[in-house]
């Protein structure tokens, strides 16, 4: 038997990217505590739709914490009050009956609000396109494990690669800095032999793009690491700084675009 609760939601409503938004108070009644946060919003939206109102627009896709689509700043924290999970993995048992929940979109100049709680995160795509890839040979596929990689290095690269690009790091950062995301993407290739070809070019190109998108500057508060649903570490940012500064001072390279 699950307990049921009534909640007061203060939700950011914004018609489109041009209009001014505002907080709207919406009642969410009879919410089961084993629902996920997004299922709760589904129920609320059903209600709104039945009443002929515009449902709350929010991003979501896989609903199992791997796609990086869901966002939402819940009571002042990206992905809600728990650590190491995305909004879709957050259960209503983390809240209590009668609670007021403030739901806001990611806030950053580089993430403009599209509608209600959904923001445009294509800035991340453009950073990836600037250098977050490796060149591969054409022709037959190489046998697996042809290139030897120590387990330790493979694990570290894998940990960086678990970044799902949700943008919680930007949302949590008081400076709206994207350095945790960018550093994870730089690290996963910098660590591996396959990533060496474009290693220094990549660091420069991705940092340039990050700056061009208008993200803030990291002040090492560690908020990103604490709020990251995938546990991406600050060591990635140190590595990015190292890669970038090495490129600049010891290996100045052209970047291809």
């Amino acid at each position: 038997m699950s307990a049921h609760m009534n909640l007061t939601l203060k939700v950011w409503r914004q018609k489109n990217d041009k209009s001014k938004g505002q907080f709207v108070t919406i009642q969410a009644n009879d919410i089961a505590d084993d629902m996920s946060f997004l299922e709760m919003l589904d129920i609320v939206n059903d209600d709104l739709t039945r009443k002929g109102e515009d449902p709350i627009y929010f991003d979501h896709d896989c609903r199992e914490g791997i796609c990086g689509m869901c966002s939402l700043v819940i009571n002042g924290r990206p992905h809600g009050p728990k650590y190491g999970i995305t909004t879709c993995q957050l259960h209503m048992r983390s809240f209590h009956d009668g609670q007021t929940i403030v739901i806001e979109p990611w806030r950053a100049a580089a993430f403009p609000v599209l509608k209600d709680l959904a923001v445009d995160r294509t800035a991340f795509d453009r950073i990836q396109q600037a250098g977050g890839y490796v060149n591969v040979n054409t022709g037959g596929v190489q046998d697996a494990n042809n290139i030897l990689i120590p387990k330790r290095i493979a694990d570290e690269a894998f940990e960086s690669a678990t970044c799902i690009g949700c943008g919680a790091c930007v949302a949590a950062c008081k400076n709206a800095s994207a350095m945790l995301f960018v550093s994870a993407k730089i690290s996963q290739f910098a660590l591996l032999p396959q990533g060496q070809t474009e290693r220094y070019e990549r660091a420069q190109a991705m940092v340039d793009q990050m700056d061009a998108e208008g993200f803030g500057n990291c002040t090492n508060t560690g908020a990103c690491e604490a709020e990251c649903p995938k546990g991406i570490k600050l060591t990635n940012i140190a590595r990015m700084n190292r890669e970038y500064l090495t490129a600049k001072f010891f290996r100045e390279e052209d970047i291809h675009n």
Binding site: R107, K174, A176, G216
Partner: peptide, 18 residues
């Protein structure tokens, strides 16, 4: 950094993460 977040949060729980 100010320019990077023109619209702030209504609720920002900084002490939870930093």
């Amino acid at each position: 950094n100010k320019k990077a977040r023109p619209v702030g949060y209504k609720q920002y729980n900084g002490q939870a993460n930093s």
